[in-house]
Amino acid sequence: MSEVQLKKKKEELEEEHPMEHLLRMERMPHIWCPTCGIGTAVTAFLMALEKSQIPLKDTAIVSGIGCTGRVAGYVKLDSFHSTHGRAIPFATGLKLANPKLKVVVFSGDGDIIGIGGNHFLHAARRNMDLTVVCVNNFIYAMTGGQCAATTPITANTSTSPYGNFEQPFNLPYLAASCGAVYVARWTALDVRRLAKSLTEALQKKGFSFVEIICPCSTLYARRNRLGTGLDLMKFYHDNSVIKHGADLSELDIGFQSKIVVGKFIDRERPTFIEGVNQGLRGVLKEKFVEYGGPIDDD
């Protein structure tokens, strides 16, 4: 390499990543496998975070456990890495204690829907003011590729070595039926559309939900002979269908089936805090003392 080339290379290397100010760069490299889709999902989220213009100081992110559960550890916000399945209730406590916060739950399908499913239902029902981002890679990846509540029928996992024969959840349908006010699904390929959806979700009051279909090359793709993460991205390109406002009951995902993506729900409903405060004020009148957030002891 000539000196000029070397200098150019050096400059390239030193160039700041456009998202650097939103990441804990001292924690890089991250733990995700090459061609994993979680990094893309995080990038789209950070793009949305900037676009949404929500003050970063007032934004907190909560994850549970799993590959996606590590997201909270890399994002430069007040970030909490809680227990398996409990990101949503942890976030609920955080939000209610300090209502000025914008609280995002960023975790995987196993965490949010598998072990934490009950909390998901109730947070959506209450319209808890949270943005829930669920990375769905169809498998328990952190623990080595076990069957999930999202694994498509016939897909091979380490705990369904002959194929999975349980019906998986249709997440947008589930979220919408429980009362979510914003529901969208995109694949990790649709970075811009995903970022736009995430922006909308962040700006939405109440329980907003975005499912991100993500490649897991190391486990899901390998066990099912689907090639690499890149091959899965190609598959998404060829097989995902944008259908805004689609019939939610038709959003099931089969093994290597078409994947319907888009924005499905965008509606208004009082949030938990709004509903409770309004209700209590109506009943208790001037006796009602609204909780406005923590007061510093000093």
Binding site: P89, F90, T92, L94, A97, N98, H119
Partner: peptide
Amino acid sequence: VFIQMEDELGSMAAVVGAAWGGS
């Protein structure tokens, strides 16, 4: 704020979250 959670797993998790939220 009192919130009746869906179970005790959620209750305890919410309490830890609320503590970090300043309550």
